[in-house]
Structure formats: structure tokens, C-alpha cells
């Protein structure tokens, strides 16, 4: 492969990483804090993308699309958490997996019902190209990278500086202790969940111009997000970031080498990670998420 292709592929991969990071956080924290496997995160992602589509076609403003994407996704997350997920906390992991998967199916159904089956194209808000290291990069992709980075910094600030953030961290490290401290764990769960689903919505609306917005867009993303989360180690935000960076490159550089690799290479990574390093790269919650004994 020649170097002229490699550099754009790496930049391209960074923007993929940005999206992966945004949509994977919810799954990672959902496991780390609530001990559930929430497959329905991709509903928020898909709704985010569709809100971008709807807003852009109605008002022409992509910014409104992003805002609507975040708000609608966060609201859906709020509904699902307070109405349904509260009933599954503490249940078997496999049960939470099947329940949230059903919610995912319902979400897909609602989307089909509202927007139909045909993919909806969303055009990119800016088409400017910016030269970086002699490579022409679309400004929009840089924009995504920047947003993901800002989100990461904000989350770190929130976790380290705010009371609720500290409670969340304590919760991830030791779920029993938080209840012992008398912090209202329900509220923490709800807030965390709403933030995570809002971010998934943001990821969806940002990704809308880059993919085909369709009812099944969440399926591919679901598996990619799980790969990211497993590679990073569940419950670790830094781990999720690093593994999103890796997966972005795997997808992008892999796809540049041979285009079908963009789809299958992540699965090969997942296969190897699960078999040989199931605690992920960082293994923070290795004891909770690992081998049976």
C-alpha cells in the first residue's frame, strides 16, 4: 500500500474512532456501573441519525439536527431507564441482554414505522477540505474528531470534579459501597444513563452524513461498539477511548488495504481478544467480566 493512501486512511480512521467512542460509552458504563448489557444503546444512535435527517430536511440546519439528536436520544434513554431497565438491575446478565435486545428490536420497528424502510441520505454540513501534512482532509471529519475529544475531556472533568461524577466512579469500582454511602443510586443510574444515551444520539447524528441512515444501521454499529468495549475493558472510559482509536484504524486502514476488511477485520480482532485476552487491554473490571471461575 502506498503512503499517499495511508495518511488519509489514518485521519479517516480517527473520525471513525470518534463515532465509536461516542456510541460505545453507554455500553461500557452500563456494564461497569449497572451490571447490565444494554444492547438498546443503538436505538439512541439510530434515532440521533434520523433526527439529523429530519432536521436537515425540515430546516436545513445541521446544528439543529445534532441538538435534536442529543435531546431525543437522551429522552428515550430516560424513558427506557426509568420504565424498564430499573426492573432488570441485579438480574442475570443474560436476561438483561435479551431484554435490551428486545427494546432494540422495538426501536427498529418504531423507526421503520416512522421513516419507512428506505435509507435516508443526509448531506454533510460543510464540504471544505483542509490540507494537513499535505493531505486533503474533509473539515467535517476533523469536526467529529474535535467533538469526540471535547466529550472525552468533559466526561473526565465530570467524573473527577463533580460529586455525582465521583459517585459514578465509586459505583463502577464498587457497586455495593455506593449504596452503603447512602447516595441515591437510582438517581445516579438515571443521570448516567441519560448522558450516555445522549452521547449515543450525538454519535448517530454526527455519523448520519457519513453512512446511509437506515433502520438497520444500528446492527453493524452494535457489533462494532461491542468490539470496542471488550477491547477497552468494560467500565473503563479511558479504555473505551483507546480501543476506539485502535478500532478506527483497524476499520479504516484495513478497508484501505482491501475494502471487505473494513467489515470483517474488527470481528477478527474481537475473536482474538475474547479468546486470548478477555479482560481487554486495560482489564479494569476483569474480575467481573471474564472467565467463568
Amino acid at each position: 500500500m502506498n503512503i499517499d493512501l495511508l495518511l488519509p486512511a489514518i485521519f479517516f480512521g480517527l473520525s471513525v474512532s470518534g463515532i465509536l467512542f461516542l456510541v460505545s460509552l453507554g455500553i461500557s458504563i452500563g456494564f461497569g456501573l449497572m451490571r447490565i448489557i444494554n444492547m438498546e444503546q443503538m436505538v439512541y444512535y439510530t434515532f440521533g441519525a434520523y433526527m439529523a435527517y429530519t432536521m436537515v430536511s425540515a430546516t436545513g440546519s445541521f446544528l439543529l439536527g445534532i441538538i435534536a439528536g442529543i435531546l431525543v436520544a437522551a429522552f428515550l434513554g430516560f424513558l427506557v431507564e426509568t420504565q424498564l431497565l430499573r426492573r432488570v438491575y441485579g438480574k442475570e446478565l443474560m436476561f438483561t441482554m435479551v431484554v435490551t435486545f428486545s427494546v432494540f428490536l422495538i426501536g427498529i420497528g418504531i423507526i421503520q414505522y416512522t421513516w419507512g424502510l428506505d435509507p435516508k441520505p443526509v448531506s454533510s454540513p460543510f464540504h471544505t477540505m483542509i490540507p494537513i501534512l499535505g493531505v486533503q482532509m474533509p473539515l467535517y471529519r476533523l469536526f467529529i474528531i474535535a467533538i469526540a475529544f471535547v466529550v472525552y475531556v468533559l466526561i473526565q472533568l465530570m467524573l473527577n470534579k463533580t460529586i455525582i461524577g465521583k459517585a459514578i466512579r465509586a459505583g463502577i469500582e464498587n457497586p455495593d459501597q455506593v449504596q452503603g454511602l447512602g447516595i441515591n443510586i437510582r438517581r445516579i443510574f438515571t443521570v448516567t444513563f441519560v448522558v450516555a444515551s445522549g452521547l449515543a444520539g450525538l454519535g448517530g447524528s454526527l455519523n448520519a452524513p457519513l453512512t446511509m441512515t437506515g433502520p438497520y444501521m444500528g446492527f453493524d454499529m452494535l457489533l462494532f461498539a461491542f468490539i470496542t468495549v471488550i477491547l477497552g475493558g468494560l467500565g473503563s472510559i479511558k479504555g473505551t477511548l483507546v480501543s476506539a482509536l485502535i478500532m478506527g484504524q483497524v476499520i479504516s486502514v484495513g478497508g484501505t488495504i482491501w475494502s471487505p476488511l473494513a467489515f470483517v477485520a474488527p470481528f477478527i480482532v474481537m475473536f482474538c481478544v475474547i479468546l486470548w485476552r478477555p479482560t481487554g487491554l486495560f482489564g479494569v473490571t476483569g474480575k467481573a467480566f471474564g472467565f467463568q471461575e
Partner: peptide, 28 residues
């Protein structure tokens, strides 16, 4: 032997990966 020693969630996902890789092999 490789799969069943995994815990439930990993078992679910490694099968998904196997499916993706297997069908990729068949298709491509």
C-alpha cells in the same frame, strides 16, 4: 472447547464474531 469455557456474554459475542467471519469467508 474454545467457546464454552467463556462466560455468557463473551459466548454470545464470540459467536457473533464467528458468524461475521464465517460468512465473510464463504462470501468473499
Amino acid at each position: 472447547p474454545a467457546f464454552i469455557r467463556l462466560r455468557g456474554d463473551y459466548f454470545a459475542l464470540i459467536n457473533a464474531a464467528t458468524c461475521a467471519i464465517g460468512m465473510f469467508t464463504i462470501e468473499k
